[in-house]
Design a protein around this nucleic acid. Structure first.
Lengths: 248, 248
DNA sequence: TAACCGTTTTGATTTGTGTCAACACGTCTA
DNA sequence: TAGACGTGTTGACACAAATCAAAACGGTTA
Protein backbone atom coordinates (compact mmCIF):
# COMPACT_ATOMS: atom_id res chain seq x y z
CA UNK A 1 0.00 0.00 0.00
CA UNK A 2 1.33 3.42 -0.84
CA UNK A 3 1.23 6.56 1.18
CA UNK A 4 -2.05 8.25 0.56
CA UNK A 5 -2.10 11.96 1.11
CA UNK A 6 -5.72 12.61 1.90
CA UNK A 7 -5.33 16.21 2.95
CA UNK A 8 -6.90 18.41 0.33
CA UNK A 9 -4.44 20.95 -0.92
CA UNK A 10 -6.00 23.76 -2.93
CA UNK A 11 -4.96 23.57 -6.56
CA UNK A 12 -2.72 26.35 -7.70
CA UNK A 13 -3.86 27.86 -10.98
CA UNK A 14 -1.62 30.22 -12.81
CA UNK A 15 -3.27 32.42 -15.36
CA UNK A 16 -0.04 32.22 -17.29
CA UNK A 17 -0.88 31.69 -20.95
CA UNK A 18 0.65 28.69 -22.58
CA UNK A 19 3.42 29.41 -25.04
CA UNK A 20 3.88 26.18 -26.93
CA UNK A 21 5.93 27.96 -29.55
CA UNK A 22 8.53 28.79 -26.91
CA UNK A 23 8.36 25.48 -25.06
CA UNK A 24 11.42 23.30 -25.24
CA UNK A 25 9.20 20.24 -25.09
CA UNK A 26 7.51 21.20 -28.31
CA UNK A 27 8.96 18.29 -30.26
CA UNK A 28 7.55 15.91 -27.68
CA UNK A 29 4.13 17.49 -27.41
CA UNK A 30 3.36 18.74 -30.89
CA UNK A 31 3.69 17.56 -34.48
CA UNK A 32 6.08 19.13 -36.95
CA UNK A 33 5.06 21.43 -39.73
CA UNK A 34 2.37 23.48 -38.06
CA UNK A 35 1.68 26.93 -39.44
CA UNK A 36 1.96 29.92 -37.13
CA UNK A 37 -1.75 30.33 -37.03
CA UNK A 38 -2.23 26.67 -36.09
CA UNK A 39 0.22 27.06 -33.25
CA UNK A 40 -1.69 30.09 -32.08
CA UNK A 41 -4.91 28.09 -32.06
CA UNK A 42 -3.23 25.36 -30.03
CA UNK A 43 -1.82 27.89 -27.59
CA UNK A 44 -5.31 29.27 -27.16
CA UNK A 45 -6.55 25.78 -26.40
CA UNK A 46 -3.92 25.01 -23.78
CA UNK A 47 -5.68 27.32 -21.44
CA UNK A 48 -3.70 27.32 -18.26
CA UNK A 49 -0.67 25.88 -16.64
CA UNK A 50 -1.07 24.40 -13.23
CA UNK A 51 1.38 23.57 -10.51
CA UNK A 52 1.06 20.26 -8.74
CA UNK A 53 3.06 19.83 -5.57
CA UNK A 54 4.82 16.63 -4.62
CA UNK A 55 2.35 13.99 -3.33
CA UNK A 56 -0.60 16.00 -4.63
CA UNK A 57 -3.11 14.37 -6.97
CA UNK A 58 -3.52 15.79 -10.46
CA UNK A 59 -6.71 13.76 -10.70
CA UNK A 60 -8.28 10.83 -8.93
CA UNK A 61 -10.15 7.75 -10.11
CA UNK A 62 -13.85 8.59 -10.21
CA UNK A 63 -13.36 12.28 -10.83
CA UNK A 64 -15.02 13.87 -13.80
CA UNK A 65 -13.01 13.74 -16.98
CA UNK A 66 -12.65 17.05 -18.73
CA UNK A 67 -9.09 17.48 -19.84
CA UNK A 68 -5.87 15.70 -20.59
CA UNK A 69 -2.59 17.05 -19.31
CA UNK A 70 0.84 17.61 -20.79
CA UNK A 71 3.65 17.49 -18.29
CA UNK A 72 5.77 20.62 -18.58
CA UNK A 73 8.11 19.70 -15.80
CA UNK A 74 8.20 17.20 -13.01
CA UNK A 75 7.39 13.57 -12.54
CA UNK A 76 4.17 11.62 -11.99
CA UNK A 77 2.91 8.15 -11.28
CA UNK A 78 -0.48 6.72 -12.20
CA UNK A 79 -2.09 3.90 -10.27
CA UNK A 80 -5.28 1.89 -10.24
CA UNK A 81 -7.05 0.63 -7.15
CA UNK A 82 -8.93 -2.62 -6.59
CA UNK A 83 -11.94 -2.74 -4.26
CA UNK A 84 -10.05 -4.92 -1.82
CA UNK A 85 -7.38 -2.28 -1.36
CA UNK A 86 -4.72 -3.69 -3.65
CA UNK A 87 -3.23 -1.19 -6.00
CA UNK A 88 -0.85 -1.20 -8.91
CA UNK A 89 1.28 1.56 -10.36
CA UNK A 90 0.49 1.56 -14.09
CA UNK A 91 3.13 4.04 -15.16
CA UNK A 92 5.63 6.77 -14.41
CA UNK A 93 5.37 9.88 -16.56
CA UNK A 94 7.87 12.64 -17.16
CA UNK A 95 8.11 15.97 -18.96
CA UNK A 96 6.62 15.97 -22.43
CA UNK A 97 4.32 13.03 -21.76
CA UNK A 98 0.54 13.07 -21.67
CA UNK A 99 -1.67 12.15 -18.72
CA UNK A 100 -5.37 11.46 -18.48
CA UNK A 101 -6.23 9.47 -21.57
CA UNK A 102 -7.78 6.78 -19.40
CA UNK A 103 -10.69 9.15 -18.83
CA UNK A 104 -11.73 9.50 -22.46
CA UNK A 105 -13.66 6.25 -22.62
CA UNK A 106 -16.09 7.14 -19.84
CA UNK A 107 -17.34 10.08 -17.88
CA UNK A 108 -14.65 9.76 -15.26
CA UNK A 109 -11.01 8.98 -14.74
CA UNK A 110 -10.16 5.37 -13.98
CA UNK A 111 -6.84 5.89 -12.27
CA UNK A 112 -5.04 8.32 -9.98
CA UNK A 113 -2.27 10.62 -11.11
CA UNK A 114 0.08 11.77 -8.37
CA UNK A 115 3.06 14.09 -8.63
CA UNK A 116 6.28 12.51 -7.35
CA UNK A 117 7.97 15.90 -7.33
CA UNK A 118 6.77 19.47 -7.64
CA UNK A 119 5.51 19.62 -11.19
CA UNK A 120 3.92 21.85 -13.74
CA UNK A 121 1.36 20.69 -16.28
CA UNK A 122 -0.53 22.21 -19.20
CA UNK A 123 -4.28 21.69 -19.12
CA UNK A 124 -5.76 20.60 -22.44
CA UNK A 125 -9.56 20.72 -22.28
CA UNK A 126 -10.59 17.62 -24.15
CA UNK A 127 -13.64 19.01 -25.94
CA UNK A 128 -11.43 21.75 -27.27
CA UNK A 129 -8.78 19.28 -28.36
CA UNK A 130 -11.34 17.26 -30.30
CA UNK A 131 -12.69 20.40 -31.94
CA UNK A 132 -9.25 21.57 -32.97
CA UNK A 133 -8.10 18.17 -34.17
CA UNK A 134 -11.08 18.16 -36.53
CA UNK A 135 -9.54 21.24 -38.09
CA UNK A 136 -5.84 20.56 -37.90
CA UNK A 137 -5.02 17.26 -39.49
CA UNK A 138 -1.49 17.12 -38.11
CA UNK A 139 -2.81 17.61 -34.61
CA UNK A 140 -5.33 14.83 -35.06
CA UNK A 141 -2.67 12.50 -36.39
CA UNK A 142 -0.37 13.35 -33.54
CA UNK A 143 -2.98 12.79 -30.88
CA UNK A 144 -3.85 9.39 -32.32
CA UNK A 145 -0.20 8.47 -32.29
CA UNK A 146 0.12 9.48 -28.66
CA UNK A 147 -2.80 7.27 -27.68
CA UNK A 148 -1.50 4.38 -29.74
CA UNK A 149 1.95 4.77 -28.21
CA UNK A 150 0.34 4.38 -24.82
CA UNK A 151 -1.26 1.11 -25.95
CA UNK A 152 2.05 -0.18 -27.27
CA UNK A 153 3.77 0.82 -24.04
CA UNK A 154 1.15 -1.05 -22.05
CA UNK A 155 1.78 -4.15 -24.14
CA UNK A 156 5.43 -3.87 -23.22
CA UNK A 157 4.53 -3.75 -19.54
CA UNK A 158 2.27 -6.77 -19.96
CA UNK A 159 5.17 -8.61 -21.56
CA UNK A 160 7.39 -7.61 -18.66
CA UNK A 161 4.88 -8.68 -16.03
CA UNK A 162 3.92 -11.86 -17.82
CA UNK A 163 7.26 -13.30 -18.85
CA UNK A 164 10.21 -11.71 -17.08
CA UNK A 165 11.92 -12.61 -13.84
CA UNK A 166 12.67 -10.02 -11.17
CA UNK A 167 16.13 -8.91 -12.30
CA UNK A 168 15.07 -8.70 -15.93
CA UNK A 169 12.17 -6.47 -14.93
CA UNK A 170 14.35 -4.09 -12.99
CA UNK A 171 16.99 -3.98 -15.73
CA UNK A 172 14.28 -3.22 -18.30
CA UNK A 173 12.95 -0.51 -16.03
CA UNK A 174 16.36 1.15 -15.58
CA UNK A 175 17.17 0.98 -19.29
CA UNK A 176 13.79 2.53 -20.08
CA UNK A 177 14.33 5.38 -17.63
CA UNK A 178 17.81 5.96 -18.96
CA UNK A 179 16.51 6.12 -22.50
CA UNK A 180 13.79 8.60 -21.59
CA UNK A 181 16.17 10.84 -19.67
CA UNK A 182 18.46 10.82 -22.67
CA UNK A 183 15.63 11.94 -24.96
CA UNK A 184 15.14 14.88 -22.63
CA UNK A 185 18.76 15.90 -22.70
CA UNK A 186 19.76 14.47 -19.33
CA UNK A 187 22.52 12.01 -18.63
CA UNK A 188 21.70 8.45 -19.67
CA UNK A 189 24.03 7.10 -17.01
CA UNK A 190 23.23 9.06 -13.90
CA UNK A 191 19.84 9.99 -12.54
CA UNK A 192 17.70 10.37 -9.50
CA UNK A 193 14.79 8.03 -8.89
CA UNK A 194 11.68 9.98 -8.00
CA UNK A 195 9.82 6.96 -6.71
CA UNK A 196 10.26 4.64 -3.73
CA UNK A 197 11.26 0.98 -3.91
CA UNK A 198 7.67 0.18 -3.05
CA UNK A 199 6.40 2.12 -6.06
CA UNK A 200 8.96 0.52 -8.36
CA UNK A 201 7.91 -2.84 -7.01
CA UNK A 202 4.25 -2.12 -7.56
CA UNK A 203 4.94 -1.11 -11.15
CA UNK A 204 7.07 -4.20 -11.79
CA UNK A 205 4.81 -6.63 -9.98
CA UNK A 206 7.41 -7.25 -7.26
CA UNK A 207 7.71 -6.66 -3.52
CA UNK A 208 9.92 -3.84 -2.38
CA UNK A 209 12.38 -6.31 -0.79
CA UNK A 210 12.84 -8.02 -4.13
CA UNK A 211 13.52 -4.68 -5.80
CA UNK A 212 16.04 -3.82 -3.11
CA UNK A 213 17.79 -7.18 -3.49
CA UNK A 214 17.96 -6.78 -7.26
CA UNK A 215 19.52 -3.34 -6.85
CA UNK A 216 22.11 -4.82 -4.47
CA UNK A 217 22.80 -7.65 -6.88
CA UNK A 218 23.31 -5.22 -9.78
CA UNK A 219 25.73 -3.28 -7.63
CA UNK A 220 27.68 -6.40 -6.66
CA UNK A 221 27.93 -7.32 -10.33
CA UNK A 222 29.23 -3.85 -11.09
CA UNK A 223 26.38 -2.91 -13.42
CA UNK A 224 25.29 0.12 -11.45
CA UNK A 225 26.07 2.07 -8.34
CA UNK A 226 23.22 2.81 -5.97
CA UNK A 227 23.10 5.39 -3.23
CA UNK A 228 19.53 5.59 -2.06
CA UNK A 229 17.72 7.08 -5.01
CA UNK A 230 20.78 8.13 -6.89
CA UNK A 231 21.58 5.68 -9.67
CA UNK A 232 24.66 5.54 -11.82
CA UNK A 233 24.77 3.05 -14.66
CA UNK A 234 28.31 1.71 -14.98
CA UNK A 235 27.84 -1.12 -17.46
CA UNK A 236 24.87 -0.66 -19.72
CA UNK A 237 25.71 -3.71 -21.82
CA UNK A 238 25.83 -5.80 -18.67
CA UNK A 239 22.29 -4.75 -17.92
CA UNK A 240 21.22 -5.48 -21.46
CA UNK A 241 22.72 -8.94 -21.28
CA UNK A 242 20.40 -9.68 -18.39
CA UNK A 243 17.55 -9.51 -20.87
CA UNK A 244 17.61 -12.00 -23.72
CA UNK A 245 18.11 -14.68 -21.10
CA UNK A 246 14.78 -16.43 -20.66
CA UNK A 247 13.96 -18.27 -17.43
CA UNK A 248 14.11 -21.70 -19.11
CA UNK B 1 5.80 -21.09 -27.64
CA UNK B 2 2.66 -21.18 -29.63
CA UNK B 3 2.03 -22.89 -32.91
CA UNK B 4 3.24 -20.67 -35.68
CA UNK B 5 1.58 -21.19 -39.02
CA UNK B 6 4.21 -19.96 -41.40
CA UNK B 7 2.59 -21.19 -44.60
CA UNK B 8 1.33 -18.25 -46.58
CA UNK B 9 -2.35 -18.60 -47.22
CA UNK B 10 -3.70 -16.17 -49.81
CA UNK B 11 -6.05 -13.68 -48.21
CA UNK B 12 -9.65 -14.03 -49.21
CA UNK B 13 -11.17 -10.72 -50.19
CA UNK B 14 -14.88 -10.44 -50.73
CA UNK B 15 -16.00 -7.49 -52.73
CA UNK B 16 -19.10 -7.53 -50.57
CA UNK B 17 -19.90 -3.97 -49.59
CA UNK B 18 -20.16 -3.27 -45.92
CA UNK B 19 -23.65 -2.69 -44.63
CA UNK B 20 -23.17 -1.19 -41.20
CA UNK B 21 -26.79 -0.10 -41.12
CA UNK B 22 -27.82 -3.74 -41.27
CA UNK B 23 -25.11 -5.09 -39.00
CA UNK B 24 -26.26 -6.47 -35.67
CA UNK B 25 -22.98 -5.32 -34.14
CA UNK B 26 -23.76 -1.73 -34.95
CA UNK B 27 -24.18 -0.73 -31.32
CA UNK B 28 -20.73 -2.08 -30.57
CA UNK B 29 -19.00 -0.58 -33.57
CA UNK B 30 -20.71 2.73 -34.14
CA UNK B 31 -21.99 5.65 -32.09
CA UNK B 32 -25.65 6.45 -31.69
CA UNK B 33 -27.42 9.25 -33.45
CA UNK B 34 -25.82 9.17 -36.85
CA UNK B 35 -27.77 10.57 -39.76
CA UNK B 36 -28.48 8.34 -42.73
CA UNK B 37 -25.98 10.21 -44.84
CA UNK B 38 -23.31 9.80 -42.20
CA UNK B 39 -23.93 6.09 -42.08
CA UNK B 40 -23.59 5.97 -45.85
CA UNK B 41 -20.26 7.72 -45.63
CA UNK B 42 -19.09 5.22 -43.03
CA UNK B 43 -20.28 2.30 -45.13
CA UNK B 44 -18.32 3.71 -48.04
CA UNK B 45 -15.24 3.85 -45.83
CA UNK B 46 -15.51 0.26 -44.61
CA UNK B 47 -14.36 -0.91 -48.00
CA UNK B 48 -14.33 -4.63 -47.85
CA UNK B 49 -14.99 -7.54 -45.63
CA UNK B 50 -12.37 -10.17 -45.41
CA UNK B 51 -12.42 -13.76 -44.22
CA UNK B 52 -9.62 -14.97 -42.00
CA UNK B 53 -9.35 -18.68 -41.48
CA UNK B 54 -8.46 -20.31 -38.19
CA UNK B 55 -4.74 -20.01 -37.41
CA UNK B 56 -4.30 -17.44 -40.16
CA UNK B 57 -2.74 -14.06 -39.38
CA UNK B 58 -4.79 -10.93 -39.90
CA UNK B 59 -1.56 -8.97 -39.59
CA UNK B 60 1.93 -9.54 -38.26
CA UNK B 61 4.33 -7.43 -36.23
CA UNK B 62 6.48 -5.45 -38.62
CA UNK B 63 3.90 -5.32 -41.39
CA UNK B 64 2.91 -1.97 -42.77
CA UNK B 65 0.05 -0.31 -40.94
CA UNK B 66 -2.75 0.86 -43.16
CA UNK B 67 -6.04 -0.09 -41.59
CA UNK B 68 -7.75 -1.07 -38.41
CA UNK B 69 -10.21 -3.94 -38.35
CA UNK B 70 -13.64 -4.48 -36.86
CA UNK B 71 -14.42 -8.09 -36.08
CA UNK B 72 -17.72 -9.07 -37.67
CA UNK B 73 -17.63 -12.63 -36.50
CA UNK B 74 -15.09 -14.96 -35.00
CA UNK B 75 -12.38 -14.80 -32.42
CA UNK B 76 -8.78 -13.50 -32.39
CA UNK B 77 -5.75 -13.30 -30.21
CA UNK B 78 -3.00 -10.70 -30.35
CA UNK B 79 0.52 -11.40 -29.18
CA UNK B 80 3.87 -9.67 -28.95
CA UNK B 81 7.22 -11.30 -29.46
CA UNK B 82 10.53 -10.67 -27.71
CA UNK B 83 13.82 -11.08 -29.57
CA UNK B 84 14.74 -14.08 -27.45
CA UNK B 85 11.66 -15.97 -28.57
CA UNK B 86 9.46 -15.36 -25.57
CA UNK B 87 5.98 -14.22 -26.42
CA UNK B 88 2.94 -12.99 -24.59
CA UNK B 89 -0.69 -12.99 -25.59
CA UNK B 90 -1.85 -9.40 -25.04
CA UNK B 91 -5.53 -9.97 -25.65
CA UNK B 92 -8.40 -12.02 -27.01
CA UNK B 93 -10.85 -10.17 -29.24
CA UNK B 94 -14.37 -11.08 -30.27
CA UNK B 95 -17.12 -9.80 -32.55
CA UNK B 96 -17.68 -6.06 -32.37
CA UNK B 97 -14.18 -5.31 -31.12
CA UNK B 98 -11.46 -3.41 -32.93
CA UNK B 99 -8.02 -4.73 -33.89
CA UNK B 100 -4.90 -2.99 -35.10
CA UNK B 101 -4.68 0.20 -33.03
CA UNK B 102 -1.14 -0.73 -31.99
CA UNK B 103 -0.04 0.22 -35.50
CA UNK B 104 -1.17 3.84 -35.38
CA UNK B 105 1.84 5.11 -33.48
CA UNK B 106 4.39 3.98 -36.03
CA UNK B 107 4.64 2.86 -39.60
CA UNK B 108 4.11 -0.77 -38.74
CA UNK B 109 2.17 -3.10 -36.52
CA UNK B 110 3.81 -4.05 -33.24
CA UNK B 111 1.95 -7.28 -32.57
CA UNK B 112 0.45 -10.25 -34.36
CA UNK B 113 -3.26 -10.83 -34.76
CA UNK B 114 -4.28 -14.45 -35.32
CA UNK B 115 -7.74 -15.87 -35.85
CA UNK B 116 -8.61 -18.60 -33.34
CA UNK B 117 -11.61 -19.64 -35.42
CA UNK B 118 -12.77 -18.88 -38.95
CA UNK B 119 -13.59 -15.19 -38.77
CA UNK B 120 -14.81 -12.27 -40.77
CA UNK B 121 -13.55 -8.73 -40.37
CA UNK B 122 -14.34 -5.30 -41.80
CA UNK B 123 -11.36 -3.39 -43.13
CA UNK B 124 -11.27 0.26 -42.06
CA UNK B 125 -8.53 2.11 -43.96
CA UNK B 126 -7.04 4.37 -41.35
CA UNK B 127 -6.42 7.43 -43.49
CA UNK B 128 -10.06 7.31 -44.48
CA UNK B 129 -11.16 6.94 -40.87
CA UNK B 130 -9.17 10.01 -39.87
CA UNK B 131 -10.61 12.00 -42.74
CA UNK B 132 -14.16 11.01 -41.88
CA UNK B 133 -13.75 11.55 -38.17
CA UNK B 134 -12.72 15.13 -38.95
CA UNK B 135 -16.15 15.56 -40.47
CA UNK B 136 -18.35 13.46 -38.22
CA UNK B 137 -17.95 14.51 -34.63
CA UNK B 138 -19.76 11.49 -33.21
CA UNK B 139 -17.44 9.18 -35.12
CA UNK B 140 -14.40 11.00 -33.82
CA UNK B 141 -15.68 10.81 -30.26
CA UNK B 142 -16.45 7.14 -30.62
CA UNK B 143 -13.07 6.28 -32.01
CA UNK B 144 -11.33 8.09 -29.18
CA UNK B 145 -13.43 6.18 -26.71
CA UNK B 146 -12.51 2.89 -28.33
CA UNK B 147 -8.82 3.69 -28.04
CA UNK B 148 -9.18 4.85 -24.47
CA UNK B 149 -11.14 1.74 -23.58
CA UNK B 150 -8.20 -0.29 -24.83
CA UNK B 151 -5.87 1.64 -22.53
CA UNK B 152 -8.17 1.07 -19.57
CA UNK B 153 -8.43 -2.62 -20.42
CA UNK B 154 -4.64 -2.86 -20.54
CA UNK B 155 -4.43 -1.30 -17.08
CA UNK B 156 -6.76 -4.02 -15.87
CA UNK B 157 -4.48 -6.68 -17.29
CA UNK B 158 -1.47 -5.02 -15.67
CA UNK B 159 -3.33 -5.11 -12.36
CA UNK B 160 -4.09 -8.78 -12.89
CA UNK B 161 -0.51 -9.66 -13.81
CA UNK B 162 0.99 -7.52 -11.09
CA UNK B 163 -1.11 -8.34 -8.06
CA UNK B 164 -3.23 -11.47 -8.49
CA UNK B 165 -2.47 -15.09 -7.74
CA UNK B 166 -3.14 -17.85 -10.26
CA UNK B 167 -6.71 -18.73 -9.31
CA UNK B 168 -7.76 -15.11 -9.10
CA UNK B 169 -6.37 -14.52 -12.56
CA UNK B 170 -8.29 -17.39 -14.07
CA UNK B 171 -11.50 -16.45 -12.27
CA UNK B 172 -11.15 -12.88 -13.52
CA UNK B 173 -10.57 -14.21 -17.01
CA UNK B 174 -13.66 -16.43 -16.96
CA UNK B 175 -15.87 -13.70 -15.54
CA UNK B 176 -14.64 -11.30 -18.20
CA UNK B 177 -15.38 -13.78 -20.99
CA UNK B 178 -18.80 -14.50 -19.54
CA UNK B 179 -19.60 -10.83 -19.41
CA UNK B 180 -18.53 -10.24 -23.00
CA UNK B 181 -20.51 -13.23 -24.27
CA UNK B 182 -23.54 -11.87 -22.45
CA UNK B 183 -23.18 -8.48 -24.15
CA UNK B 184 -23.26 -10.32 -27.46
CA UNK B 185 -26.43 -12.19 -26.63
CA UNK B 186 -24.83 -15.52 -25.78
CA UNK B 187 -25.18 -17.49 -22.60
CA UNK B 188 -23.24 -16.02 -19.68
CA UNK B 189 -22.94 -19.47 -18.12
CA UNK B 190 -21.94 -21.77 -20.92
CA UNK B 191 -19.39 -21.19 -23.62
CA UNK B 192 -16.66 -22.67 -25.69
CA UNK B 193 -13.06 -21.57 -25.20
CA UNK B 194 -11.45 -20.78 -28.51
CA UNK B 195 -7.92 -20.79 -27.14
CA UNK B 196 -5.65 -23.45 -25.69
CA UNK B 197 -4.52 -23.69 -22.06
CA UNK B 198 -1.15 -22.51 -23.25
CA UNK B 199 -2.64 -19.36 -24.75
CA UNK B 200 -4.70 -18.69 -21.64
CA UNK B 201 -1.55 -19.16 -19.61
CA UNK B 202 0.42 -16.79 -21.77
CA UNK B 203 -2.26 -14.13 -21.41
CA UNK B 204 -2.47 -14.60 -17.65
CA UNK B 205 1.27 -14.86 -17.08
CA UNK B 206 1.01 -18.51 -16.01
CA UNK B 207 2.21 -21.86 -17.30
CA UNK B 208 -0.34 -24.11 -18.96
CA UNK B 209 -0.06 -26.66 -16.14
CA UNK B 210 -1.04 -24.01 -13.63
CA UNK B 211 -4.05 -23.06 -15.75
CA UNK B 212 -5.07 -26.68 -15.97
CA UNK B 213 -4.74 -27.18 -12.23
CA UNK B 214 -6.80 -24.08 -11.53
CA UNK B 215 -9.54 -25.38 -13.83
CA UNK B 216 -9.52 -28.69 -11.99
CA UNK B 217 -9.66 -26.92 -8.66
CA UNK B 218 -12.64 -24.80 -9.76
CA UNK B 219 -14.40 -27.97 -10.85
CA UNK B 220 -13.72 -29.70 -7.52
CA UNK B 221 -15.11 -26.66 -5.72
CA UNK B 222 -18.21 -26.82 -7.89
CA UNK B 223 -17.73 -23.38 -9.41
CA UNK B 224 -17.61 -24.61 -12.98
CA UNK B 225 -17.74 -27.74 -15.05
CA UNK B 226 -15.01 -28.27 -17.59
CA UNK B 227 -14.97 -30.64 -20.52
CA UNK B 228 -11.98 -29.76 -22.61
CA UNK B 229 -12.84 -26.37 -24.01
CA UNK B 230 -16.46 -26.41 -23.02
CA UNK B 231 -17.04 -24.37 -19.88
CA UNK B 232 -20.16 -24.16 -17.79
CA UNK B 233 -20.26 -21.70 -14.93
CA UNK B 234 -22.24 -23.23 -12.08
CA UNK B 235 -21.57 -20.77 -9.27
CA UNK B 236 -20.73 -17.31 -10.47
CA UNK B 237 -20.72 -15.83 -6.97
CA UNK B 238 -18.25 -18.50 -5.90
CA UNK B 239 -15.92 -17.32 -8.62
CA UNK B 240 -16.41 -13.72 -7.63
CA UNK B 241 -15.61 -14.54 -4.03
CA UNK B 242 -12.18 -15.73 -5.18
CA UNK B 243 -11.42 -12.15 -6.02
CA UNK B 244 -11.46 -9.68 -3.17
CA UNK B 245 -9.20 -12.08 -1.30
CA UNK B 246 -5.73 -10.60 -1.47
CA UNK B 247 -2.68 -12.85 -1.01
CA UNK B 248 -1.77 -11.35 2.37
C1' DT C 1 -9.75 -50.22 -36.30
C1' DA C 2 -5.13 -48.78 -35.04
C1' DA C 3 -1.64 -45.33 -34.92
C1' DC C 4 -0.44 -40.73 -34.35
C1' DC C 5 -0.58 -36.03 -33.01
C1' DG C 6 -1.55 -32.07 -30.27
C1' DT C 7 -3.55 -31.00 -26.06
C1' DT C 8 -4.71 -31.65 -21.31
C1' DT C 9 -4.36 -33.61 -16.80
C1' DT C 10 -1.97 -35.06 -12.78
C1' DG C 11 2.07 -36.09 -9.78
C1' DA C 12 6.76 -35.22 -7.70
C1' DT C 13 10.12 -31.96 -7.05
C1' DT C 14 12.55 -27.48 -7.45
C1' DT C 15 12.96 -22.66 -7.20
C1' DG C 16 12.16 -17.70 -7.29
C1' DT C 17 9.86 -14.57 -4.90
C1' DG C 18 6.96 -13.45 -0.94
C1' DT C 19 6.74 -13.04 3.94
C1' DC C 20 8.29 -11.86 8.42
C1' DA C 21 11.57 -9.69 11.12
C1' DA C 22 15.48 -7.02 12.52
C1' DC C 23 18.34 -3.41 11.73
C1' DA C 24 20.58 0.68 9.22
C1' DC C 25 20.25 5.06 7.10
C1' DG C 26 18.66 9.94 6.26
C1' DT C 27 15.72 13.62 7.24
C1' DC C 28 12.89 16.26 9.98
C1' DT C 29 11.44 18.05 14.28
C1' DA C 30 11.50 19.05 19.11
C1' DT D 1 21.65 16.56 20.07
C1' DA D 2 18.18 13.05 20.59
C1' DG D 3 14.21 10.93 19.04
C1' DA D 4 10.93 9.63 15.66
C1' DC D 5 9.55 8.48 11.24
C1' DG D 6 9.73 7.05 6.56
C1' DT D 7 12.59 4.42 3.73
C1' DG D 8 15.89 0.94 2.45
C1' DT D 9 18.74 -3.28 3.31
C1' DT D 10 19.58 -7.91 4.64
C1' DG D 11 18.63 -12.58 6.52
C1' DA D 12 15.85 -16.84 7.49
C1' DC D 13 12.11 -19.27 6.12
C1' DA D 14 7.60 -20.42 3.65
C1' DC D 15 5.02 -21.10 -0.21
C1' DA D 16 2.92 -20.59 -4.88
C1' DA D 17 3.97 -21.55 -9.21
C1' DA D 18 7.48 -23.42 -12.42
C1' DT D 19 9.67 -27.40 -14.01
C1' DC D 20 10.12 -32.12 -15.29
C1' DA D 21 7.84 -36.25 -16.38
C1' DA D 22 4.33 -39.51 -17.48
C1' DA D 23 0.03 -40.76 -18.79
C1' DA D 24 -4.81 -39.85 -20.53
C1' DC D 25 -7.79 -37.84 -23.80
C1' DG D 26 -9.82 -36.35 -28.32
C1' DG D 27 -9.56 -35.80 -32.99
C1' DT D 28 -7.54 -36.99 -37.41
C1' DT D 29 -5.43 -39.94 -40.69
C1' DA D 30 -3.90 -44.30 -42.67
Amino acid sequence: MHTNNKSIIPVTLTTLKAACSQCNLRELCLPYGLTESEIEQIEAMVGVRRRVKRQQHLYRAGENFEAIYAIRSGFFKTDVLLEDGRDQVTGFQMAGEILGMDGISGETHTCNAVALEDSEICVIPFAHLERLSREIQALQRHFHQVMSREIVRDHGVMMLLGTMRAEERLATFLLNLSQRFTTRGYSPAEFHLRMTRDEIGSYLGLKLETVSRAFSRFQEEGFISVQQKHIRILDISGLKKLLNHPPG
